[in-house]
């Protein structure tokens, strides 16, 4: 089955990266996970390069995840979209930076921390993933998990046996930046996929883990990645739970920081995707709501005005913002439908 057919047609415009080089923001809540959507982004960027019929969307991808490890993403993308991340890694189209194992998991599992990527059972697709240690609670205790900084000084380099796999060993932004940059540099751009999409999965956990880290320095980190010549888009996945955002009265410093990070990233983004549960309660045949809003103007086209066609100025209503419902099935497939089009579809 070709991978792109795994993306429902209604979802296709949502996960396609815009033409303009820009930042994208994806928010999710605890009840409505956005992992299924991230795998669709992976599928759209990586899968369309294999087919020649829809060019333009093909991109190399660097996935940086602070919330799940490589094995999780490999399983998810295989299950949901039929994407073979291992094969794409060897092709030089995909790289993974593990922000979870080296930073937040107990180190005494296989010995040294930085050996963890090599110990992954990457060559056993049939083995179901063990979800125990990987699925930490989202906002677990920050954990005294900052490992020895001596390993952080080592040059971030993928093990030769596992190309395209990197691991973070420090929470300092310099180290993270260096590691992600190395992962971007390791990709092999091709004429079909000349640019790179960087996906940052839950970098907001750093706000809670690193004392003194400000939202401004995190957004500077995003912008630093975006200035790299081969990077065209940066997709940032943040949490937008009410418990994490600032309430009107007496917000805690962490809530203020999280709110400022979300708001500031939304201001910077050309497209804001939000995943949430139904406002009216739980329904059996609906997993949640996906909302997309587009910020059309940016500094890049600040001096460009419309072409003067009176009719052309009025765009289709879904250009401004739209909502669809989705249902993630047990086998990882997803069904996307309009509001009210429910079970009949």
């Amino acid at each position: 089955m070709p991978p792109t057919s795994r993306i429902p047609p209604l979802l296709q415009p949502f996960v396609r990266t815009p033409k303009n080089e820009s930042l994208l923001l994806l928010t999710s809540t605890l009840d409505a996970s956005a992992n299924w959507l991230l795998t669709r982004f992976l599928c759209d960027a990586l899968g369309s390069g294999q087919k020649d019929n829809d060019n333009g969307g093909a991109k190399n991808v660097v996935l940086v995840s602070w919330m799940n490890d490589y094995e999780f993403w490999r399983q998810e993308s295989r299950k949901g979209t039929g994407l073979d991340l291992g094969g794409l890694r060897t092709l030089g189209r995909f790289a993974f930076v593990d922000g979870l194992s080296g930073l937040f998991l107990p180190a005494a599992e296989d010995g040294a921390d930085q050996q963890r990527p090599q110990s992954l059972p990457a060559a056993q697709p049939g083995v179901p993933a063990t979800r125990g240690p990987q699925s930490l609670p989202l906002r677990g205790p920050p954990g005294r998990t900052t490992p020895a900084t001596a390993t952080a000084q080592a040059a971030p380099r993928a093990p030769t046996s596992q190309p395209g796999l990197y691991a973070l060993s420090s929470t300092s932004l310099d180290h993270i930046n260096a590691t992600v940059t190395a992962a971007i540099a390791s990709l092999r751009p091709s004429p079909a996929a000349p640019r790179t999409l960087v996906i940052l999965d839950n970098p907001d956990i750093l706000l809670a883990c690193v004392p003194g880290l400000t939202p401004a320095s995190l957004t500077s980190f995003f912008l630093g990645l975006h200035t790299q010549p081969s990077v065209s888009h940066v997709l940032i996945h943040l949490q937008s739970d009410l418990a994490l955002l600032a309430p009107p009265e007496r917000p805690s410093p962490l809530q203020i920081a999280q709110q400022n990070l979300v708001v500031r990233t939304a201001h910077m983004s050309a497209k804001v995707l939000g995943v949430r549960v139904l406002d009216t309660g739980v329904a059996r045949d609906v997993s949640g709501v996906l909302r997309v809003t587009v910020n059309r103007e940016s500094w890049a086209d600040i001096a460009t005005v419309g072409e003067g066609a009176e009719g052309g100025a009025v765009q289709a209503p879904e250009e401004g913002g739209s909502e669809v419902l989705y249902k993630v099935n047990g086998d990882g497939s997803v069904r996307v439908f309009e509001r009210g089009a429910g079970a009949a579809a």
Binding site: T29, R276, G320
Partner: peptide, 18 residues
Amino acid sequence: GMQTGAEGIVQCLHANDE
């Protein structure tokens, strides 16, 4: 938008009217 206090909503659908 965010002022509604609904969980998960960052930007209003009718934001940035064309």
